[in-house]
Structures are given as structure tokens and as C-alpha cells.
Amino acid sequence: MAEIPGSDHAFLADEDLRELYRLMVAVRHLDESAIRWQRQGLIPGYAPELGQEAAQVGSGYALDMTRDFVFPTYREMGVARTVGVDMVEYMSTHKATWHGGLYDPAATRFAPIQAVVAGSVLHAVGWAHAQTLDGTGGAAITYFGDGASSQGDVHEAMNFAAVMKAPVVFFIQNNGWAISVPTERQVAGGSVAARAAGYGIPSLQVDGNDVVAVAEATAAALAHARAGNGPAIVEAMTYRRGPHSTSDDPGRYRTLEAERADAGEDPLQRMRSHLVAKGLADEAFFEEALAAAKAEEERIREGIMALGPRPGREMFDFVYQEPTAALKDQARAWREESEHV
């Protein structure tokens, strides 16, 4: 595999390392809480990211949100939190309030939550090409998994990006499972990064449970793209420790023993050990980080509980910038015939 030069280790100072841990704790606690919210009936469903905190926080931390743009799937809560998306507005998608979430994707530079597997990978290429045309120095990062890498759009996106030298980072979270199908039944050759050679795209396969390694790899890939060298691929090897969603039952396709054996070391524990070993954090720091995460989750939960359904007229309001007469007629009929007059 081609090398991505210019990895910039210097950008992670001691305080950055502590911040990466705080972010991972916040994400972990919110993620686990969201499963409880679903069990309590507060939200109808959720797609947990347990075990992928390092991949998401590390990659998100490497972005420059003054000029970059994120193209997520439906499992990038950790990235959203890291780049500063309002988490009530983000989690509203899991409350079935609005498909894409309630946050402003243009202002946050975080594209609407995308339920179509690999749906937004090509969008990242188009957006990135626009940065070339405009000379902004911005780069796109597009997230997808080992399962999505089977989609034809991923091939088209990588090929387009390489041909056009578009500044885009393809960030794959290879979490071992596409719902019930393991990577070896999904990805021929066992690695998405290995495909990069065929496109002439440099790639990095990185330990996705090591938040520092992920942040550094992503920063290197972004630097490569910004410098006008075209796209880069980062494959973060991680593990989906939880179910695909709150409707999934992993017991039907993997044993607990296999799960424990394959999951490897918990990314939070790893970072905790790292901070302790470097003398950057003590017990008080970890307690404080957890307390902050709990307080944050409490605020988000209250926000989600307070969130009512959107007015029904919004079904009609956002279909077009310039609604058709037929749609206006339908909205009028709905108003007259429903209880929402």
C-alpha cells in the first residue's frame, strides 16, 4: 500500500489527549444511555456505536471545521459530538422527529444523517471537487463501514475522486459486522484499504481502537488531500461491540465468547491506561470526565423528552424550495381534513 506522508504528530498536545478521553467518555455514556432511552420508550430505535468511540472521536478531532465537511451515515454520533453538532438536534433522528436530524447541516458542516448505505459517499466527492474549483483548502470526509463498501457507489466514488484528484478522505470503520454478516463474507481480501492500490489512492489501515493513532492517520490523510494530492483512504479496524441496532439480536449470529475474544481491548480503557502511563491524568480527572458526561447526557435527555413532534405542515414545507400547486392543494386538504386546523 502507498504511504501517506506528512503525519503530523505535533498537533496532539497533552491537553488534546485529555480532551480526546473526555470526548470518548461523553460519547460512550450518551451511547449507552440511548439504548436505555429506547428500552424506556423515550426513543423508538437507536444504532449504537459501542466500541467505535476511538475511531469516531479520533477522526472527528482531526478535522478543521472552519473548512472541512463531514458526510456521515446513521452511526456517527461520536463524530457529530466531536465536531460540535447540537446533540439534542442530532439525537432527534432517533426519536423519529426528522430523518436527517434537526441540526442545520450547512451551518454545522455535518451533512444530514444518511440512512442509505453508502448514499453520501459520492456527495463527498462532489463537495470536495467544488473545493478544488473554489480553492478553499477544505476537505471532505466520508464515513462508511465494511458492509457499505460492497455498494457500487463506493467504487464509483473512489474512482471519480482519484480521476479528479478530489480532496476527500474515505474513512472506513471496519467494525467486523454488517448486521449479521462478518467482514470475511462481505469484503473480498478482508480489507477495504487494500483496494486503494487499484485506484492509485494512498491508504492507511489503522488500529481503530487507538484514538491517537486514528487522529494522526486522519490528520495525515487530510493533509494529503489538502495539498492537492487527491483522495486518501483510512480504514480503522475496530469492532461493533453492541448490536447493529436496538432491534437486533447478535445472539443469533455470534456467541458471547467470540464477541469477547474478537472485540479486543476497550478503546476507553486503552486511552485511560495511556494517560495514566504518561502521567497526564489521575483518578480525579477520570471522575470529573465521567461526571461531565453524565451531566451532559442528562441535559440531552431532557431536551429529547421536551421535543414534541414537528408540525405536520413540515411534511409539505420542505419538499421543494418552490412548492407545486398540487402539493399546496394537498397541504390545504390535509389541514382541512385533519385535526390540525
Partner: peptide, 23 residues
């Protein structure tokens, strides 16, 4: 010119539009 792939042409157009272009 784009590579010969229509999903790519349309998907790329979506991204260009997100960046303020009129593809």
C-alpha cells in the same frame, strides 16, 4: 467529462449542489 458511471454523475452533482454549485 466524468468517468462512465451515472450514479457517480448524479451523486457528484448532489455534492456540488451542497457546495453551492448549480450542476
Amino acid at each position: 467529462d466524468t468517468p462512465l458511471a451515472e450514479s457517480g454523475i448524479l451523486g457528484m452533482s448532489v455534492g456540488l449542489a451542497m457546495a453551492g454549485y448549480h450542476p
